[in-house]
Design a protein around this nucleic acid. Structure first.
Length: 443
RNA sequence: CGGGGUAUGGCGCAGCCUGGUAGCGCAUCUGCUUUGGGAGCAGAGGGUCGCAGGUUCGAAUCCUGCUGCCCCGACCA
């Protein structure tokens, strides 16, 4: 992409409303625009990151056996009356009437609807287990939205729903999502720690929040230091093997880890002092096992092997991709701006032409740009007629992992500079060497 | 939902107390000079001062009502 033809509205000054670093940087970097309290438009750069996160989330859901569909944002109130949550959910649910005065709502979550879909088609235990998920916009009319997309009213959520015949099966489904979440967050460059959680209004008796540690986190969390060094389950792990999945779960729940609400100061205090981690955390995922809470009132039943109708055992599993964009920034930035992990970077390489109009510089840039594109590298070519300082500042701000800096001084020696945004490491290379390095990095 | 702020060009702000030509920096546009860490000079454009009433010869400024947005607390992917 040529920057001169892109839409990247960078702000030089800090917007006054942005209190936390991710919000500030997302506004400055032209990633989002606030349209109302807690409601944001995703500008091109922000959308690229969001889409990359979605792609990783999707891959890991699919790997764990979940099946993607897409449910609507608008739901019927009647559906929610069946589960009893239409009254229970309260003011956080945005209620709407259509032209026929029918009561509708903008979905804050989808347990009811997915249960309705399930019961309409699945009648036999032979069709289980089943896990359906979608990535869809949700609306929760928070009393006080804040921190940009970290706590928006409208937000994107990946929500998966598992259906099993019995509790043992449901636990396996839970464990599969548990493992998939560990993999997902690791691929996003985050160290997420599962912590036992309150089940809240979703209900149920088994629940974990996935928390990343960041100084600006909203909640206080406590955990055993060893978690920080645990290995992520490999891509080829046997998701369908119950013992293997239980092993992952057991290992990642073997040490103390809790959010403030579930904190047990006594247990935590019993850990060796050098293993006690007390930090701020950001919740980036939440999984629940809630049995027949919805299947019973909504009559989602299957015939078991014994021929009897049995309400299915359910669980739900949420990840907030829009919140993750902010969370990743909170965990990856410096004074100059964002520092994207390569897996979610909006572009992998920023190519800076330091002297637009200089024929040698223009030619070298055009050549490198074409070759990088051909090699399948996402490259943002800063071909604007700006001074070098402005280009460096822009590239540092938007945090692309690699910067290829091409100017007349280096070209006189046949060299360009390749800079790593995270380490600050610079290498002076020939065009070919630079091309090799930059394509190798994204292989 | 309680408490506290705030609203003036795209962004950041001053002006309001004490009513009288709407201003500054950045950004934008034009020209020239510049070009390896957010350039310099010269010129230009852009604002019914959140909305609605009221007071007044005259309101960004004073009064009343409303709305948006932000912050602090209790709740949440």
């Amino acid at each position: 992409m040529r920057l001169s033809r892109y839409f990247l509205p960078i702000l030089r000054e800090n917007p006054k409303e942005a209190e936390i670093v991710s919000h500030r940087l997302m506004l400055r970097g032209g990633m989002i625009r606030q349209e109302a309290a807690g409601i944001y438009a995703w500008l091109p750069l922000g959308l690229r990151v969001l889409n990359k996160i979605n792609a990783i989330v999707r891959e890991e859901q699919n790997r764990a056996g979940a099946v993607e569909l897409l449910m609507p944002t608008i739901q019927s109130a009647d559906l929610w009356r069946e589960s009893g949550r239409y009254e229970a959910y309260g003011k956080e649910m945005l209620r709407i009437k259509d032209r026929h005065e029918r009561e509708m709502l903008y979905g804050p979550t989808n347990e009811e609807m997915v249960t309705e879909i399930f019961r309409a088609y699945v009648k036999s235990y032979k069709d289980l287990p089943l896990n359906l998920y979608h990535i869809q916009w949700k609306f929760r009319d928070e009393v006080r939205p804040r921190f940009g997309v970290m706590r928006g009213r409208e937000f994107l959520m990946k929500d998966a729903y598992s259906f099993d015949l019995d509790e043992a099966g449901a636990r396996h489904s839970y464990n599969k999502m548990f493992a998939a979440y560990l993999r997902t967050f690791a691929r996003l460059g985050l160290k997420a720690i599962p912590m036992r959680a309150d089940t809240g209004p979703i209900g149920g008796d088994l629940s974990h929040e996935f928390i990343i540690l960041a100084s600006t986190g909203e909640s206080q969390v406590f955990c055993h230091k060893d978690f920080l060094d645990y290995d992520t389950p490999p891509a080829d792990i046997a998701f369908d093997d119950r013992a293997t999945m239980q092993g992952v779960f057991d290992r990642w729940t073997s040490q103390y880890a809790a959010t403030e609400e579930m904190h047990d100061a006594g247990k935590f205090g019993a850990l060796p002092a050098d293993k006690q981690v007390s930090a701020r955390g950001i919740e980036v995922g939440h999984i629940f096992y809630f049995g027949t809470k919805y299947s019973e009132p909504m009559k989602a039943v299957v015939n078991g092997p014994d021929g009897k109708e049995t309400p299915v055992q359910m669980g739900s599993y949420g990840i907030g991709p829009s919140r993750l964009v902010a969370a990743i920034i909170e965990a990856n930035h410096d004074e100059a701006g964002m520092i994207w992990p390569e897996s979610v970077a909006p572009f992998t390489v920023g190519l800076a032409n330091l002297k637009v109009g200089d024929s040698a510089t223009d030619a070298a840039c055009a050549d490198l740009y074409a070759k990088l594109e051909k090699a399948g590298v996402d490259v943002l070519y800063d071909d604007r007629d700006e001074r070098p300082g402005a280009k460096f500042a822009t590239l540092d701000l938007i945090g692309l992992p690699w910067q290829a800096i091409v100017g007349p001084k280096g070209l006189a020696e046949g060299k360009i500079e390749v800079k790593n945004r995270r380490s600050g490491e610079r290498a002076t290379l020939s065009l070919d060497e630079a091309l090799n390095r930059l394509t190798a990095k994204t292989a």
